[in-house]
C-alpha cells in the first residue's frame, strides 16, 4: 500500500468480533496528517466499528492503534479525545433535553466549571470562561446555520439538523483528528457544499479528517485519499481515481 510521510493515525491488525461476526478483521491502515481521507465500503463493511475502535468506544480484540507514535488502543474514550481525536455518530446522539447551544457548550473540553468545587464556589473566572464558551459555541452554530435554533431543545431538531449538530459539537473540541461518520447523509445539497467548504478550510489549517461517505461525487471530488473497506479490512487505498477503478472495489460493491 502506498503512503507518503509519517501517518498521524494508524491501526495495525486490529480485530473486533461480535459473536461470530468479525466486524473488523485484522485491519491495518494509516491516515496522513492534514488530509481528508475518505472511507468507503458497502453496508456492513465494518466502517463504523472501525471508528468506534479508534475512538475507544470498543477495545480491539487484538492489534494496536497508534496516534502520533503513541499507543491508544484500550484507552478510555475521554483520554483519546483529550489526545485530540474526536468522532461523530452516524446516528446522531444529541443530548435531548439540553438546548442546541448547551449541546455545544457541554462539549467544550476542560471547562473549570465542570469541577464541583469550583462550580459551588462560583469563581468569577469560571463564569467568564463560560461566556467565552458561549461565544465559541454561537460562532460554530452560525457556521453550520443552526444559530436560529440555538434555544431549541435538541430533541426538536429534524434529522438533518441533528447531523449538523453532531458535526458542530465535535468542532467545539478543537480536535486534531476528526472521524466523521456519514456527516452529510440527510443534509440538503446547498448546505452540503458549505459544510465541505468548512471541512476543507479546517483541513487547510492542518486538521486531519477521516470521513465515512457513501456519496461517490463527494468522495471523488473532495477527498485527498480514499480507503475502501470490505468485510472488516481495507481492500484498496490511494487517490480517489485509483480506488474508484480498483477491481476489488468494484466487485465489493457489486456484491462479489
Amino acid at each position: 500500500m502506498t503512503s507518503d510521510g509519517i501517518p498521524i493515525l494508524s491501526t495495525d491488525g486490529i480485530t473486533k468480533a461480535f459473536g461470530g461476526i468479525r466486524a473488523v478483521d485484522r485491519c491495518s491502515l494509516a491516515i496522513q496528517p492534514g488530509k481528508i481521507t475518505g472511507l468507503i465500503g458497502p453496508n456492513g463493511a465494518g466502517k463504523t466499528t472501525l471508528f468506534n475502535l479508534i475512538a475507544g468506544l470498543y477495545a480491539p480484540d487484538e492489534g494496536t492503534i497508534t496516534l502520533r507514535g503513541e499507543r491508544i488502543d484500550g484507552r478510555p474514550p475521554f483520554e483519546i479525545v483529550q489526545k485530540g481525536v474526536v468522532k461523530t455518530f452516524q446516528i446522531p446522539r444529541e443530548f435531548r433535553n439540553l438546548t442546541v447551544l448547551e449541546n455545544l457548550m457541554v462539549a467544550y473540553p476542560g471547562h473549570p466549571g465542570e469541577r464541583p468545587l469550583s462550580a459551588l464556589i462560583g469563581w468569577k473566572r469560571v463564569w467568564d470562561r463560560e461566556e467565552e464558551v458561549r461565544k465559541k459555541a454561537l460562532d460554530i452554530l452560525s457556521l453550520v446555520e443552526l444559530d436560529q435554533l440555538s434555544d431549541a431543545n435538541a430533541s426538536d431538531l429534524s434529522g438533518g439538523q441533528k447531523k449538523l449538530l453532531e458535526l458542530a459539537r465535535s468542532l467545539m473540541v478543537d480536535p486534531k483528528v476528526i472521524l466523521l461518520d456519514e456527516p452529510l447523509a440527510g443534509v440538503n445539497p446547498t448546505l452540503t457544499g458549505k459544510l465541505l467548504g468548512i471541512i476543507e478550510g479546517l483541513r487547510d489549517r492542518k486538521s486531519t479528517f477521516f470521513m465515512i461517505e457513501h456519496d461517490m461525487d463527494v468522495v471523488m471530488n473532495r477527498c485527498d485519499r480514499v480507503i475502501a473497506m470490505h468485510q472488516g479490512r481495507p481492500i484498496a487505498e490511494g487517490a480517489p481515481e485509483e480506488v474508484r477503478h480498483n477491481e476489488l472495489v468494484m466487485e465489493a460493491y457489486l456484491g462479489g
Binding site: 474514550p77 444529541e94 473540541v173
Partner: peptide, 16 residues
C-alpha cells in the same frame, strides 16, 4: 445532565 441523557455521547466528547 449530558451524562444522564447519553453517557456514550458524553464519553465520545471527552468527558470522564
Amino acid at each position: 445532565q449530558a451524562v444522564r441523557e447519553d453517557e456514550d455521547a458524553a464519553q465520545a466528547l471527552g468527558k470522564d
